[in-house]
Amino acid sequence: MTARRLLTRGNIGLALLVVVLLAMPNLASAFFVNFVLTQTMMLGVAAATIVFLARYGGMVSLAQFLLVGVAGFMFGNAAVEGGARGLNLGMNPWLAVVFAIVITTAVAFVLGALASRTTGLYFLMLTLVYAVIGFFVFAQIVELSGPGGITSIQRPDLMGPPVRLYYAGLVLSVLVYLGFKALGRATFGLTLQGVRDDPIRMASLGYNVPMHRTLAFTLAGFVAGLSGVLHVWWNGQIDPASIAIGPSLILLIMAVIGGISYFEGAWLGAFVYVLAFTYLRDLPLIDQIGITEARFNTVIGAVVLLIMVLSPEGLAGIAARVWRRVNKPASAAPTAPAGGPSSAA
């Protein structure tokens, strides 16, 4: 029964996609896998935390990239030994991972608690303030960030070959995607959606609304921290400029390009962004029409504008619409068992 229920088209599609992605290192160039796809996986996970907060909690956060950065800095401080920069704690790399995740989660808890009584635009502005403050904290407390960043950060030996990092990103992506999806039907996911739809009603049903928002932000921070550890492994260095307001906005733009109410959109948006960022300059004649690297952000801005006009739900929204149209004739039969669980009860 449960096995049958798992055989939906969506799940089969996902499984096929994962198989293809697992085979990618044998199919595509090392550059495409280790640069484009690995980045897509890491940024996709970070963007998925934005989707998680927006979709279930109704909170659009600009602070997620800060948390990615906190995890990166903490790992750098903990793992690097004897370098000129940072705290040089010289921990075992796996202990450093735990240290980075714990600190990031704790920071997310505090930031989430401070923002837990705000919603909508005020929440967005408050998280923008977090991103700005976070940047200046790392830019000015050079003991934490090393003057000009922490460099030559080594990843654990297990993660040595770059392709392993790609697999780690893929595994994390699949777990985060499935986890966030499943959470939507579990108690905490439902309570969070209740808080999104009507916080006053939730309170009168007995729920602690600010605590729900706080813990949602904490969970999103934890996941962003995982992405941050992968990111710093991949990059080998981290500096304050990399978590400035620009990159924070770009993460939100990825979620918007992909579709902020679809988890698939997080990875789709990240993929489109990385693809554009990587290959736009290689297109023939691109210089002649005035798109030089310096104007890259203008192009991204135009893409965002175009997507917002065509589909406020992003690329995933377009895909969902096409999917529905294609499946319309066939969908009459599969919708019938919708009453199944109730008749079985």
């Binding site: 579990a186 905490f188 959606q193 009603r201 007995g206 602690n208």
Partner: peptide, 26 residues
């Protein structure tokens, strides 16, 4: 809760009363 089904709406009323607020899985 407009984004949730009728069953989920009533589920939240029941869970709120029983103090079942936090589980991450079903």
């Amino acid at each position: 809760f407009d984004g949730l089904t009728i069953r989920e709406n009533i589920y939240l009323a029941l869970a709120g009363h029983r103090g079942r607020h936090w589980p991450l899985w079903r």
